[in-house]
Computed example of a mutant assay.
Amino acid sequence: MNQPHISADIVLQGLSKRFDKTLVIPDLSAHFRDGEFTVILGPSGCGKSTLLNMIAGLEEVSAGRIRIGDREVQNDEPKNRGIAMVFQNYALYPHMSVANNIGYALKVARMAKQARLERIRAAARVVDLTDYLDRFPSQLSGGQRQRVAIARAIVREPKVLLYDEPLSNLDAKLRHEMRMELSSLHKRIGATSVFVTHDQVEAMTLADRIMILNKGQIEQFDTPDVIYHKPASTFVASFIGAPPMNLIKVRGENGETRLTDGTLLTKKPRSLKDANDCLLGIRPEKISLCDDGKSDSDPVAVDILYREDLGSHTILLSRLPDGQEISITTPLGQSALIGASVRICIKPEHCHFFSPQTGLRLA
């Protein structure tokens, strides 16, 4: 385990899954690149765990093909797919030591004892469990148990590592620590990794690329940077970010963007043609308070409805002149009181435009 694992790409072609009459995943195709850390992100019920289970062989495929490396595997047993999986619950054997939990699959495979012990020690070193090999699961913290589950997966030296919400049972501090450990682990072993979560922080910090699922369909599959700064749809825009991107009903005409009551909100990018009614997206942190008169944008008056002070910044829920609500994130030391009226400025280069009918990005 001193050398990087051999990894493999995963190709899904026309994959679908039906439970009785309910179509959960309709005709999905995707390519998970060799050695890449991909996160499948989406709300509960979007089909992300079902998709992972089909790759793992824990769910039958209703239609389509799965290729791992140079082999089609949709009809293969899980043990023959060259994958290992880390689950949400640790699924450790309580009567076995850490060492025996890690090496159980190797024992079942009848690997020679000395070779098995060497692999167990190597996996334990990777996840920093060398001093815990003689302990039992009941003597470990939640984070240590999850590391045992990860070691049990990587000890088999799989080409593909699958993670099904492995951090959701941990508290916030442990989740942060485990994210750093998983990122470091991926750099060391190099296996193709597919990680399922509903937590956007996990997705943004861990992924090389993120696949965002909505009702079993791919909304966007790209790098965290592109997904955050150029969301492909209103679903992605409203799912990523805390608080999420504001989506405001506007009307574009004569190079200007106006609210529904005619108030001028901002100039319109030249690349966007007049679209009449559309949705303008703006990240809360891209909205400026401009009561100092120094902004080169047209100020708009808003009323502060609610505020959340988070130490490093403040979130202001505000009402626009036409009654729509908008969130503003202000830096430390710059804020406004509930009930106050302030002026905000929105620059054209920070605006995103979406179709109100399809939700797709316009420019």
Rank of each mutant, 00 (worst) to 15 (best):
V201F: 07
A275Y: 13
H31Q: 13
K17T: 06
I6T: 14
S49R: 12
I210H: 12
I40V: 15
L51Q: 06
I315Y: 10
V342Y: 00
L185N: 05
G216R: 10
N101S: 01
L265F: 04
Q146Y: 07
Q88T: 04
L316Y: 00
L305P: 05
K249T: 14
G255P: 09
I346S: 08
Y90D: 01
I304L: 00
L92Y: 02
D296G: 07
I40R: 15
M1R: 07
R209V: 02
A122Y: 02
P244A: 14
S312E: 00
L316I: 05
S295A: 12
C345Q: 07
R307D: 04
C290H: 06
Y163T: 05
R319L: 09
G359W: 11
G311P: 09
I68F: 10
S184P: 02
S327V: 03
I304T: 07
I346R: 03
K215D: 11
L272S: 04
D298A: 14
S355F: 08
G64V: 09
G142L: 02
E118V: 14
D76H: 15
L23R: 03
P269F: 08
T22V: 15
F235S: 04
L272T: 11
L272I: 14
V61H: 06
H229E: 14
I210M: 13
R18G: 11
V302G: 10
A275P: 04
L320C: 12
S62A: 08
V73S: 02
L133Q: 05
G241I: 13
F221R: 15
G47I: 03
A151I: 12
M204Q: 11
P4F: 01
R307H: 10
V98K: 00
S97C: 10
G57A: 01
G333L: 09
E36R: 13
A149H: 04
L52S: 02
D303A: 15
T22A: 15
E202Q: 12
E118F: 03
E77K: 13
M245E: 02
R81L: 11
L206Y: 09
D199S: 08
G339I: 01
K113L: 13
S238G: 15
T50R: 09
N53A: 12
L170D: 01
K187G: 08
G69E: 01
D309S: 15
S7R: 03
I55Y: 07
L52W: 03
D225C: 14
V226W: 02
C351N: 05
R152M: 04
A203K: 14
P321E: 00
P4I: 01
P331Y: 02
S193I: 11
D128H: 12
I248C: 02
L106V: 03
N2W: 05
F87N: 06
L289F: 02
S341N: 11
A84T: 05
G293S: 10
M211N: 07
S16L: 11
V24E: 13
T330I: 05
E77T: 10
K187E: 10
L51G: 01
M96S: 04
K286M: 13
T263I: 02
K48V: 00
P356D: 05
I315H: 14
I227V: 15
M178D: 00
R67W: 06
Q220L: 13
P269N: 05
L12I: 09
S44C: 08
V302C: 09
M1Y: 09
R116H: 10
D261A: 00
D76G: 08
